[in-house]
Every structure is written in C-alpha cells, then in structure tokens.
C-alpha cells in the first residue's frame, strides 16, 4: 500500500556534521578557506603570504586540487606544512576530505591554517569545511561581473581579495563599481586589493591574518 514518509532533511546534513567535528579539532587554530575561480592566483597569494609571515607564523595548507600535486609542491617549496587532497574530478572540497587531511598535520605546531579550495566560485560556497573564515579571491583579469554572477560565495565570505591589481591598466575592470557590488551583497565584508606578483596590498592582507590569529588566541586561550 502507498506510504508517505516526511523527511525534512538537509541533503548536506552529513557534511555539516563532519564540518562540526573539524571545527572542534580546529578550535585553537585559525582557519581560512580560500575560494576562487581557476587561475585567480590562490596559490601565488599563499606563496607570497607564507614568505611575508616566515619566522612569525607557522602556516599549514590543505591544498585542494582535482588531479595534480603541482600547487602542493609550490607551497612545500615555501617551507609550509602542506597536505595534498585530490578530489578526483569533484568540483569542491567537502568536510570529509578536509578531516582526513587534518589527520596528517600536526595542528598544535601551527599558528594559521589555509584550505585552498578547488578552483570554482559556485560549489565551494555551499560546503562548510569547519573553517573560521571563507575568503573569496577575485582577479582583475577575470572581469568585474563575478559578484553579480556568483553572489553566494561573496555572501558567505568574511573577506574578498581582489588580486592582480598590477593588470588594472590593461583591463576594463571598474574597481569602484566592483567593490560597490560586493558591498551590496554584504555591506560589512572586508576588501583587500592585492597584486601577489608585485607585492602591492600584501601588508594589509597579512595584517588581517595576524589579527585573526591574535583574536582566536584571545578567545580560546
């Protein structure tokens, strides 16, 4: 006979449960989930950030990539603790993958953890990994229409990095308009304008990273 069963269950419930477990494990370690489209400069920004904070903060990186280990090799070349996660075709990292990566890191020896997500502005925004902050990275070369086309990632992010500012003279990227659009989506969002290539703007970005490290130490002891 016919039966109706009400579930009212979130499809991503399992991910949310594991994200809570990750958050528990990361309760003393400030964690940034870095999200952008492919080629916006996530890995280069991380390389330059690790260089700038060398000797000051011990940085770990969970490096998401669909197939290769190229980014992880670049990060390891900077002397940071890195764990590679290959998603084998999947378009985002999920909490399970990050949980397994955390098993391979000595979390107590780190001051700051980055999770470099798979290059994609859509799917990573939907998956809580247990991080403290999502940061969306957008590059000048991609064009200024990204906030309007991918609003969720900007809504979910605590900060936005607008990278490749050295290319501004060669594009029609309207910096004021893009920042205004981002603030329409989330008025309190932090915006950093950087060029990982020339080093412009990295000081303000690193100052924020120091601040979140101090903040978490203050909050969790």
């Amino acid at each position: 006979m016919p039966v109706k069963v009400v579930m009212a269950q979130k499809i991503l419930r399992a991910n949310e449960q594991v994200a809570r477990e990750n958050r528990e494990r990361l309760q003393h370690l400030p964690t940034v989930n870095l999200i952008s489209s492919p080629g916006a400069g996530k890995t280069t920004l991380l390389e330059k950030t690790i260089q700038a904070l060398r000797g000051e903060l011990a940085i770990g990186v969970v490096e998401g990539d669909i197939y290769t280990t190229r980014d992880a090799e670049r990060i390891a070349g900077q002397g940071a603790a890195v764990v590679q996660v290959n998603t084998a075709g999947l378009c985002h990292l999920d909490a399970n993958m990050v949980g397994r990566a955390l098993d391979q890191l000595d979390l107590d020896s780190l001051d700051l953890l980055f999770i470099e997500n798979v290059g994609n502005l859509v799917c990573p925004a939907e998956f809580d990994l247990g991080e403290d902050y999502k940061v969306a990275l957008l590059s000048v070369a991609e064009g200024g229409d990204k906030p309007e086309k991918y609003p969720l990632v900007f809504r979910e992010s605590h900060a936005v990095v607008i990278n490749k500012s050295d290319l501004l003279p060669y594009t029609d990227f309207d910096m004021n308009k893009v920042q205004e659009e981002i603030r329409t989506l989330k008025p309190e969002i932090l915006i950093f304008v950087t060029s990982a290539a020339t080093g412009e703007g990295l000081e303000a970005w690193c100052a924020w990273l120091r601040e979140i490290v101090r903040h978490k130490r203050f909050v969790t002891g």
Partner: peptide
C-alpha cells in the same frame, strides 16, 4: 536544499 518527503 532538503528532502521534503518521499512516497513509496
């Protein structure tokens, strides 16, 4: 993004 119900 959730499952409301199913019938069977």
């Amino acid at each position: 993004l959730y499952i409301d119900y199913f019938e069977g």
